[in-house]
Amino acid sequence: MRNAWVVAKKDLGSYFNSPVFYVVTTVFLVIYSFIFFQILTFFSFQSVQANQFQGMNVGLNLNDMVIEPSFHNMAVTLLLIIPVLTMRSFADEKKSKTYSLLLSSPVHLREIIFGKFLACMTVVTLMVLLSSYCIGFLLMLGEPEIGPIITSYLGILLMAGCYVGMGVFASSLTDNQIIAAVIAFGMSLFMWIIGWAAQAASAEMGEVLHYLSLVEHMQRFLKGIVDTSDVVYYLTFIFFTLFLTHRVLDSERWR
């Protein structure tokens, strides 16, 4: 574990010492803020209307109409952004030949992989936390329920973990960062929309496809429900991507 942290620390250093983190975070925050305030504007417009026609204000609340859609949009934004953060992790080590330093050091491959994952995950968490100023804004103006907000953050981070896992995996496949980013993006998007195929599939198959979809497991978190099966799904997903990464890197040495 200490070794994983050494690797993570080094990667974090390179995120913060290069423009990558700042550019990516800025882009993320600008886009997310834009979406958030669009949603908020729409909501206030609606509530003004509802005030004018009395009796229509039933069902208008911040949680359902602002916070939930904003988290949905955050998940999509992260899907686009995270591959850019993860693409370096192994591809760059291989390209610049620094990978041999890691391999000839007395650390396990799994520690290296976990360290890389940890570094990306820390950066993503930081990004998500920075974006919470929007929610802070809401807390000042209105009275949204806190519970669903917390579970939504938990859900978002778990989902982001899956993106990061897929990103690290994609990065282990190649020494080209662009290819790593494209593969990561493709995989993430595919795992997001895989549920769509459920409509055309048979009932049992449909259920499986639904279950596999990343976004399906998000719903309950956004409603404020922490279902262990969702947590298990995300954690298994992350573990599986890291396991595949391990397989790829291990088998690479034998080729």
Partner: peptide
Amino acid sequence: LPETPPLYPDM
């Protein structure tokens, strides 16, 4: 020490 020294240029 490999043929290409394993250096991280931004450190």
